[in-house]
């Protein structure tokens, strides 16, 4: 699934025009704790989060996240939007909640890209 298809699937609004709509999404990860994201997420995942500050984008950039979904129709801070635009990472707002979104994406065939705390190293 690419970013464009993702936006349609979740009735989302793409907030930054610089995003690459063709970028392929390999799976998903839902978390509000950025340290958790950094510890567990595998590359090219979509990140579902309720956190709206610039750290979400920074985290996404460090962890090679393919797209960010803000749950429950949340609107990000201006700094967050500007950073996402600068770094070309898709920032999408969806009216659905975290639980519903995870379900939708999982049902659409996206696997979980969250690793267990017991897995040895980051890659």
């Amino acid at each position: 699934m690419n970013v464009k298809e993702l936006v349609t699937l979740i009735d989302g609004t793409l907030l930054n025009p610089s995003a690459n709509l063709m970028r392929e999404i390999r799976g998903g990860c839902g978390a509000d704790l950025m340290s958790d994201v950094l510890a567990s997420i595998q590359p090219e995942a979509v990140l579902l989060t309720g956190l709206c500050n610039p750290q979400v984008v920074r985290t996404a950039q460090m962890a090679d996240v393919a797209a960010i979904i803000l749950v429950r129709g949340k609107v990000p801070a201006r700094e967050t939007l500007e950073l996402a635009e600068k770094e070309h990472i898709a920032l999408i707002s969806s009216p659905f909640g975290m639980f519903a979104l995870c379900g939708k994406l999982y049902q659409a065939g996206l696997p979980s890209l969250e690793r267990s705390v017991n897995s040895p190293a980051c890659d």
Partner: peptide, 16 residues
């Protein structure tokens, strides 16, 4: 509230 401060930072660094 910023998504940090969960006591995972150093652990995370060590893994990377």
């Amino acid at each position: 509230e910023l998504g940090f401060g969960a006591g995972m930072g150093l652990v995370n660094i060590q893994r990377c």
